[in-house]
């Protein structure tokens, strides 16, 4: 009985308003920290300090942007990020397989994605903010052979 009472809330002096305010502030901070966009406030390192593929594809550059192309399971996925590798959504993105007519890829969640086609070279044309179109070509000859 004594053990049970020891755990009951409300036993002893009532919490002060300061204790409640502190609890709400601390709890709210802990609740929000995973979702706060605090990282832009911090130094994320130097531009172009990291050129590793992050999605299992090939990484290339278009202007100051990073583009990663992943071909897997019959689909081609293209991820675009800025100079600091922060993900961004380009205004428009099209791919050309072995020099054929460009195919515009739709934005699907967090990437541009569409059906893949057999090809050694994939040209990616990215329309960035301001309307400029930048292009780069990826060589997949090793993975095709």
């Amino acid at each position: 009985m004594a053990t049970q009472e020891r755990h009951d809330v409300g036993r002893g002096p009532a919490p002060t308003p300061l204790a409640w305010a502190g609890a709400v502030a601390l709890g709210g901070l802990l609740f929000a920290t995973p979702f706060l966009r605090y990282s832009p406030l911090l130094n994320r390192g130097e531009a172009h300090a990291n050129h590793e593929a992050r999605h299992g594809g090939q990484l290339g550059m278009v202007g100051d942007h990073h583009v990663e192309v992943r071909r897997r399971g019959g689909r081609i996925d293209v991820f675009v990020s800025d100079a600091l590798r922060a993900p961004l959504r380009a205004e428009r993105l099209a791919v050309s397989f072995d020099g054929a007519d460009p195919v515009v890829l739709p934005w699907v969640g967090h990437r541009f994605s569409g059906p893949d086609q057999p090809a050694r070279d994939v040209e990616v044309r990215v329309t960035v903010a301001g309307g400029a179109e930048l292009a780069t070509t990826f060589d997949f000859s090793e993975s095709v052979e």
Partner: peptide, 26 residues
Amino acid sequence: MESESKALDPIGVVLGLFGLGNLLNG
């Protein structure tokens, strides 16, 4: 049958909000 208070105290507020954030993140 054990009885237990379900009222929140300050520690409960911290744990509840912290837990909710982890639930949403997961």
